[in-house]
Write a protein that binds this DNA or RNA. Structure first.
Lengths: 198, 198
DNA sequence: TTATTATGAATGATGGTTCATTTTGATCTT
DNA sequence: AAGATCAAAATGAACCATCATTCATAATAA
């Protein structure tokens, strides 16, 4: 059996277990059982429990970034790009619920218990948005005065709050598509009635 | 010494310790030392470690809700109300950093390790926003088609992502006031250049 | 035969919780 | 005013369950 197989099996098992119980309540023996592997085997592939979590972040976010960037390259209009990003972000909950749950719940507070770990992958992910915003400003579509550091986080935060909701309570009455559309719309055009439409 | 004094002392100590170490890494003895109280004393006022955390949520969010509602009642324009809400939410990081940190980091994932606990106070807080949005729709200021469940979370999420940033890395280069203004602006009018202004 | 990979019982540290004991302070007695 | 009494409040050492991690041993495969 190839090394990478066990590595992957453990990662996938850990995602499941962390999603179900949370990082701290999850036991190594839970992960081992889920991966159909002995407790000790885990330590042949990872240094410790934290290392498993970090590997999940690094490897899985890496895959997501790749996919999203690819999808965005298909588009030319920055407005559409934002919608595509939104769609991808929200879809994650549906397509990989366990992973979404781990990223939602554990990633955010990882800085607390892993002081030294700087999650550059996560930053890279959010910065996809600022790239789009910058593009939109260059094309004279977005307002020049937008504060990029605020705008990107406003958009990301809005999306992420919705995906947090879905992770906690799957039923909201809204579909992913309409939610992505609505959030993009609010971000692009605002909640106010457009006075010109009068 | 009155009962309530110790209760408060322990709560305040716990906020400090939870902020510094996170809920799981915090030891009861840490909290006891910070509160200048014996370990056992804590169990005279709280059932267990979780109970301390829940009490923080209930009592402290209660206070915040009161303050915010009061400040919003001063305003008549829903657009201003949103800005006031934003200002209050962001100010919390500055004025009560430890509490903000606990709410940011621990509150969100509380559902994971305290399955039975439904945080109604938190819901109540976010619902202040939907009340404002509803008002704005009635006054024909906000678009009627806004999905209230999405819009309120978009606004809240945007704000909260910024306060998460401040909790993690205090220096961002933006002031609270300009951030509140910017987020409100984006939410109200969008990121796009208003075409009528052409 | 030997190097690699895997096992899972044993180890050891940790820290939430308990509880026998002490301290406090209010009330009553003389 | 000085003891005496007692319930409530506080203490902190000890208990014990819980795992993360290790490592002597076994299985596998080259």
């Amino acid at each position: 059996m190839r090394t990478s197989d066990k590595h992957q099996k453990i990662i996938q098992a850990a995602i499941k277990v962390f999603a179900r119980k949370g990082f701290f309540s999850a036991r190594i023996s839970d992960i081992a059982k889920e991966a159909k592997v002995a407790d000790g085997t885990i330590y042949l592939y990872f240094n410790n429990k934290y290392d498993i979590l970090i590997s999940i972040f690094e490897e899985e976010i890496g895959k997501i970034i790749l996919q999203v960037k690819l999808a965005i390259e298909e588009e030319t209009d920055p407005r559409r790009m934002l919608e595509v990003f939104a769609l991808h972000h929200l879809k994650l909950v549906e397509e990989k619920r366990d992973l979404a749950e781990v990223l939602q719940m554990e990633l955010r507070q990882s800085n607390k218990f892993m002081k030294e770990y700087r999650n550059t992958r996560f930053i890279e992910y959010v910065d996809i948005i600022s790239t789009i915003i910058h593009l939109g400003q260059e094309q004279n579509i977005f307002r020049k005065e937008l504060l990029p550091g605020v705008a990107k986080r406003a958009f990301f935060g809005a999306l992420d709050e919705m995906s947090r909701l879905w992770v906690l309570a799957p039923e909201t009455g809204y579909t992913i598509e309409e939610t992505a559309k609505e959030i993009s719309n609010i971000f692009l055009f605002g909640a106010c009635r457009q006075s010109m439409a009068e």
